[in-house]
Design a protein around this nucleic acid. Sequence first.
DNA 1: TCTGGGGTCCTAGGACCC
DNA 2: TCTGGGGTCCTAGGACCC
Length: 386
Amino acid sequence: MNHFLHVDLDAFFASVEQLDFPELAGKPVIIGGLPTDRRSVVSTCSYEARKFGVHSAMPSAQAARLCPQGIFRHGRMSRYHEKSKEVMSIFLEFSPDIQQISIDEAFIDLTGTERLFGPPQETAIKLKQQVKERTGLTVSAGLASNKYLAKIASGMNKPDGFCHIKPGEEEQFMLSLPLKKLWGVGEKTLQKLQSSGFKTTRDIHAVSIETLSQLFGNACGTFLYNAVRGLDVEKFDTLSKSKSISSEKTFSYDLSELFIIETELLQLSQDVIFRVVSEELTSRTICLKIRYEDFTTVSARKTFGSYFFTSKSLFEEIKKLFIAKWDSKKGIRLLGISMQNLEKNTELQGELFDFGNKKQQLVEKTVIEINKKNPDSPVQNARLLI
DNA sequence: TCTGGGGTCCTAGGACCC
DNA sequence: TCTGGGGTCCTAGGACCC
C-alpha cells in the first residue's frame, strides 16, 4: 500500500509577511499589485482578506473595493523562496522521496516509513507540528494512497487542515465530491460537463470511458474516468524538467507605436535569453505572444535549423514574427516572448551551429556575469536606457 | 471591476516521408 | 486515375494550475 502526503502552505506569501511583520498578524493582507497599479491582480491574500471575498487573480482595484481596510503589499519573492527552502528541508527529514511541485507545495512519499515514524497519519501530524514550530507557518496536508487523491485531500480542510482518505474509501470519497473540487477541471470544463448533463461525480461514474472520450477528448475523458474512481491520474508522474522559458509584460497603457513596441521586445528578448543562458540551455523554437486591447490573444511560433544564443539574434527573429502578425489597428496590452523545447547548451552545439555569433555571445555572457554580481545597476543595451 | 506572470499539457490540422 | 495508412515534426490556440 502506498502512502502519499500532499502538503500545501496556507496563504503562503501573505503568511510570510505576517510572520516577518507582526503588526500584520490577524489583518487582511493582500499580496500582489497595489490597487493604484493599473491592471494589477492579487497574487495571494490572508484568510482575513478572504472573508471579504478577495481571492487570487482578482484585479487589485476590485479587491480594494471589497476590502477597503486591506493591507496591500508587493511580493518579496526571494524571501518566499528562502522560506520555502526551510520548509522543504523539514519535509526531507520525514522521507527522502519528496517532489516539490511549486513554491508552496510538495508530495512526500511516506510509503515504507512506518518502521521509522509510525503510522503515516501520525507522521503527517508530526510534520505539521514541526513546520509550525520551526518556521512559524501552518500547512494543510492530505494523505491518501495516490498523489491525485492526496492533492485533493489537502484542500479539504484549509487552513491548518488535515484530511486522510483511508485505503478502501477512495472511490466513495470521490463520489461525494462536488464537481468543482476536481483538480484539473476548471471553469470551461465544468461548464461543458454541466451542459452535457453531468452535475455530480456520480453522473460521470455512470458512463463509459468511450463516452467521456468522445465528449471531452481522449486525454480529458480518460482523466475524468479515472478521477471519479479514485484512481491515480498520472498528473504528477513526469519529472517536470523545464521545457520553456518565457517573459511577458502587460503594459499600463496600450502600445501602438512601433519604436516603443520594438524596445519592449528587445527588453523581453534580453530577459528570456538571460535566463536561458544562465541555466545553460538553448533552443531552436521561439514564440511571440500579442494580447490586444480587446483581450484577444494571438501567437506566432517558429522553429529554426540552428540554436539561439544571443539576444541580438532572438530579437531580430522576434521582430520579423511581430511584423508578420501585427494588427496595427488594435492597441497592444501585452507582449510576451518564450523559448520552447529547451535543450542543454553544450559548447559543441555553440561551435557547430552558431560560430558566427561567438563574439556576440561572449559579450552577452559578460553582461550576464556583471548583472549577476550587481543586480541593482544592470549593464543594459543603450536603447533600453532611453 | 475589466482580466498578472510563469509554466505544463492537449488538440487539430498541415507538411512531408515512407 | 485514384488513393492506403503510419509516423514525425511543426504551428496556433486553448485549458488549466500556482
